[in-house]
């Protein structure tokens, strides 16, 4: 090895070390940035609820230092009908989930597997229906609900909420169903199942994770719906949380405000945790959609 070559090798080695150090620094900067953005995002997203939770246990004016108290949370259960609102939301949400699955699962199967010449148009029509927003319908639907004798009853919401949840669920379930190999269905039919039997006993169990995701999404949408609940229901006994709690703000009792804040947090956290469990599944279905188009 000549001295010149040795010099070149040393320079190259030094250059490589420099490059590696630069890459390491860059990686640290990227990691720090990602963590910083994640922390800020999480904080901003949770901020209103954190503040609501912090003040729910305070005495006196917000921000002032006092011994924590549970009186506001107790007032939520004694001075408001929060428990009634929660039960109404759970009943409506549960029934809407059942109705939605009963309608959407067969429809999604028909659209994704039973190839008809009009299948594409039917799918598009269902999607278009989803685009008709509640503010265009609440005036006429309130007449429909009144005519059916369902005004001011939670049954009005059970009847109407699936108009929002069915189209979304059809679309999602069809995406899940396309992920099931056709072979297992054909095998089931070879084994003596009818096409219907193959759907119920073999295909539906395959998309159970997808069904679970749709259940959570449907419940979340039904629990969050505001326009119809506001229009159809006016007595405390039938109100869901989404209109029951805001209505308590109008009372002018500032002490009750803190109770209402804690109520919002009690509803928000379980829903976020439930949806968080299924986030990856939603992302993967959406990714399929993005990939196919």
């Amino acid at each position: 090895m000549t001295p010149v070559n040795g010099l070149a090798a040393r320079t190259a080695a030094r250059e490589m070390l420099r490059q590696r150090r630069l890459a390491a620094v860059r990686q640290v900067v990227v990691r720090v940035t990602v963590y910083a953005v994640a922390a800020v995002a999480a904080l901003v997203c949770a901020a209103p609820f954190l503040w609501g939770l912090a003040t729910a246990f305070e005495r006196g004016t917000p921000g002032a230092r006092h011994r924590p108290t549970t009186e506001h949370v107790r007032a939520l259960f004694h001075s408001t009908r929060f428990p009634t609102f929660v039960v109404n939301t759970l009943v409506v949400g549960g029934l809407v989930v059942v109705v939605t699955l009963a309608l959407a699962l067969p429809a999604a199967y028909a659209l994704s597997r039973l190839h008809r010449s009009w299948g594409g148009r039917a799918g598009l029509a269902i999607l278009l229906v989803y685009l008709v927003p509640p503010p265009l319908l609440f005036l006429s639907l309130s007449r429909v609900v009144a005519t059916l004798g369902l005004a001011d009853s939670i049954w009005s919401l059970v009847l109407v909420h699936p108009t929002v949840t069915v189209p979304v669920s059809v679309w999602l379930l069809a995406a899940f169903l396309r992920g099931v190999p056709v072979d297992i269905e054909e095998q089931a039919m070879v084994d003596g199942h009818s096409r219907f039997g193959a759907f119920v006993r073999v295909v539906a169990p395959q998309v159970l994770p997808g069904i679970a995701a749709v259940v959570v999404l449907t419940f979340t949408l039904a629990a969050g719906e505001f326009t119809y609940a506001l229009t159809f229901i006016w007595s405390d006994a039938s109100m869901p949380v989404s209109t029951g709690l805001p209505a308590r703000l109008g009372g002018g009792d500032p002490m009750l405000w803190r109770s209402v804040q804690s109520g919002a947090v009690f509803v928000a956290v379980p829903l976020a945790i439930a949806c968080g469990l299924f986030l990856d599944r939603f992302v993967s279905v959406l990714a399929q959609g993005a990939h196919r188009d």
Binding site: P246, G263, A268
Partner: peptide, 12 residues
Amino acid sequence: LVLLPWTTPVAL
């Protein structure tokens, strides 16, 4: 935490 805004009923 990031999902909170999306999953919470908007009125709340």
